[in-house]
Design a protein around this nucleic acid. Structure first.
Lengths: 222, 222
DNA sequence: TCCATTTTGGCATCGAGTGCCATTAGTGTG
DNA sequence: CACACTAATGGCACTCGATGCCAAAATGGA
């Protein structure tokens, strides 16, 4: 689903982030004891271990050891073990909002949403492998599959708000909610099909999302 | 989503169940030590505590004490704490399958599915309050929301298989999967709207599911 | 150098979940 | 009726995720 802004396991920032939300250490000034690690470092350590021992087989203790910090510190960077594979997903919702906003006004709402979703899932070639690996982990590990609902809810909210804005409804009304849920349904179907493909290239995510949407249209037409 | 066959907190069987799956104690003959409790008794005890202390505030120890059995025994009836509010959902999937199968052959697939889903969610008046309470708990408790994905996946599978059968595709193909995901999307939107209503009566679940489907059609039409 | 500031990480604790196994309470048989 | 047979029970120990608490560490600035 997501296009991560930061937290990429391979390329991301090694510096602590300056955000004012969640358990992320906020660095308002340069005073005080300096941070000992970063989201990127923790994710790298974690993915290294996940690859060899699996998600369930990797303890938080082990991740802490691999990252060279205390277990307690890991929990200050990530609320839970399940949050680690998601990286810093929260940041990307702003990006998603922007993508939706920049779609042409004269498009039908569902088309604007669809295009926004497609763009949201367009990645440069070099970002594809780690993205794929991340999503594979999330979508095939039961604990993570379950946990991801909470993330999806935030993502759906972005859509519901956009639809509400464009149709004059409230975000909690039925149609905006349906739009959010159905967009997620399309995306998840597409991701599953994408991951089922043997070659990491084949049709890309954007194409598959288009197909999934076309599939829905044909399904609903009879 | 579900129409539970057994495990109803108010009306269900007080006898151990004869099923051959999961951690449910299988009673093949009448020999051996008799069971000390039942799914129904455990659920009743659990819901009593959930009502006063909330889900997170209720420990498995407490549920065991309330039910008059050992904690270890509770875990033989339910794989996890999260499974308790779901009752014996697995049983209802057979019922759902039957409902889909009995829809007229000449209906368009999406119509047959929709009708099956609607029927699946039609309850006699006296079953409504406990059902509503159960779903309220599941859909408003984060842990349970997350956990429910695993149940939904089984439910979606039933739809995907039916669509595959009727269209000559395989269950894992894109369109059947999309059908499953989208049906779930509709159902969840409907449930949320249903729970948001102050009165337990107002429009019933079947009506709201119809509206959600109509909402999707209008959304996709522009 | 001392202070304010901020992160760190150790420790204790809780609760979910699991493996192990002796105990219990029935049924069927001689 | 006593004795084996059978199957559920429940206690115990243990692992692991998660959280609260707090002293220690490490920096910039006065």
């Amino acid at each position: 689903m997501p296009k991560w802004k930061g937290g990429d396991v391979l390329t991301s920032d090694a510096m602590p982030d300056v955000v004012a939300e969640g358990p992320t250490p906020t660095r308002s000034s340069a005073r005080g004891r300096p941070v000992a690690t970063s989201h990127a470092a923790i994710e790298q350590a974690a993915f290294r271990l996940f690859a060899t021992h699996g998600f369930a087989g990797t303890t938080m203790e082990a991740i802490a050891r691999e990252a060279g910090v205390g277990k307690r510190t890991i929990f200050r960077y990530y609320q839970s073990k399940n949050d680690i594979p998601w990286g810093r997903f929260d940041r990307t919702l702003d990006h998603f909002r922007a993508l939706l906003a920049e779609q042409a006004d004269d498009l039908p709402v569902h088309t604007a949403i669809h295009r926004g979703v497609v763009e949201f899932n367009r990645f440069p070639a070099d970002a594809r492998p780690p993205h794929r690996e991340r999503m594979r982990l999330i979508l095939t590990t039961p604990e993570l599959q379950a946990h991801s609902v909470l993330r999806y809810a935030e993502w759906r909210r972005v859509i519901a708000e956009h639809v509400a804005l464009r149709t004059g409804a409230r975000p909690d009304d039925l149609v905006p909610q349906v739009a959010g849920h159905v967009s997620l349904a399309i995306s998840l179907s597409a991701y599953e099909a994408w991951l089922a493909e043997p070659d990491a290239d084949a049709p890309g995510l954007p194409e598959i999302i288009d197909r999934a949407m076309a599939g829905l249209q044909s399904y609903l037409s009879g």
